[in-house]
Design a protein around this nucleic acid. Structure first.
Lengths: 210, 210
DNA sequence: TTAGTTACTGACTGGTCAGTCATTAAACTC
DNA sequence: GAGTTTAATGACTGACCAGTCAGTAACTAA
């Protein structure tokens, strides 16, 4: 309150930077209080604008939620897909690398909060859950499934059910994201997601050997 | 509407059965619409009572949420603990059995919806998240950790980080619960959690062999 | 300097809903 | 079957908040 009134006492006109500031504030408040309990006035206050200003950039409250998810997902899966879809040698290192990338994103971005939001609001706002399902789940899982099937075909892995096994692969990472978004704020011990990903892939890939 | 008005047209006095009926209705609506968006009047309607009647049995709305979680958790962890804490032979079959039990509970009870609720409401209602953390997470994980450490000590498993490895073990089951609570209602393909637990433990235990 | 344009403000409105309570009805008592 | 107790009702109230809009401040072009 006191210090920021030094830097900006009067109102500012910054139409370019407002939307992202508002989204950042909204994500913080939504994941802190839940979507329904977060007040637009508080989002505005945290973004340093008045309530009305939000409605210059977003049609309504749920548009904030949608924009947050859209922005966070973006191109990311497509990038991973390109990386994974034409490989020559063994697939195990590629899988380990993908797990490491995901772990890194869990530790350095807002992904955990966003996953938490998607889970919590998917019924009240099915478009959100649907978007995540279509643009993340339905791209990422088949991608890993192809990778796994390829490994089985070449004899690198033993025969397992690819559909189920893919879920075994990402389960621990999903749990890590939720652990850090849900339980750490309540006092649970945080841990290195990268270390977990390493440990998991070590066990997992060894368990897939013929 | 029409048929139940045949069976019970007038108001009934059934103080013994009301609370559980109200809780069942509340769980259904909370997991359908989210806690905040569920209206007490709708909970009452689904339970076949008036809104006022709910307040004869529960002090307020959040008491419904608390009771749902309390009731669902109950003794269950303690039972598993008793089963797991004095074993003689190899621990691998015990771990597989515990995973199977959890898978069964995910498939046959409201556990997935409850997990979803805890995740979604843990910030707005920290007591809920705290209760789950204290009575489920902080009991179940150390229990599995002890089991795992014992297996490492006897040479049944190779040396891994027990703390991280336990999270690798339950991650896929957690994901299954959320899959069925969040994505299946949106059109994702359901799958057998028991089969996933089998597949997972097959890979996991093989990956732990010395 | 001034006239015009665009960004922003915040008091206000209309609707929603948790929780209350005076009233009614069922069940029990003697 | 009159009197008492306890369960249940639903209209009502007070608080809350998303979204609006008349007004104001900042910037721009002339």
């Amino acid at each position: 309150m006191t210090d920021q009134s030094v830097t900006k006492r009067t109102r500012q006109r910054r139409p370019d930077t407002r939307p992202s500031e508002i989204l950042a504030a909204a994500l913080a408040l939504f994941s802190e209080k839940g979507f329904a309990a977060a007040r637009m006035e508080d989002v505005a206050a945290r973004a340093g604008v008045s309530k009305g200003a939000i409605y210059l950039y977003f049609p309504d409250k749920s548009a904030l939620l949608k924009s947050i998810v859209h922005q966070a997902i973006g191109e990311q899966i497509a990038v991973a897909a390109r990386m994974a879809d034409h490989i020559e040698g063994p697939v195990a290192p590629v899988m380990a690398q993908l797990a490491g990338m995901l772990a890194h994103r869990i530790e350095t971005t807002d992904l955990p909060s966003i996953i938490k939001l998607v889970i919590g609001e998917s019924r009240a706002h099915p478009e959100i859950g649907q978007y995540y399902l279509d643009n993340v789940v339905k791209l990422a899982l088949p991608l890993l499934e192809r990778l796994l099937s390829h490994g089985i075909a070449t004899g690198e892995f033993r025969a397992v059910d690819p559909n189920l096994t893919v879920k075994c692969m990402i389960g621990p990472l999903m749990l890590s994201a939720l652990w850090h978004a849900v339980f750490v704020p309540l006092g649970a011990a945080p841990y290195s997601v990268a270390a977990l990903a390493d440990q998991h892939m070590d066990i997992f890939l060894r368990g897939l050997r013929p």
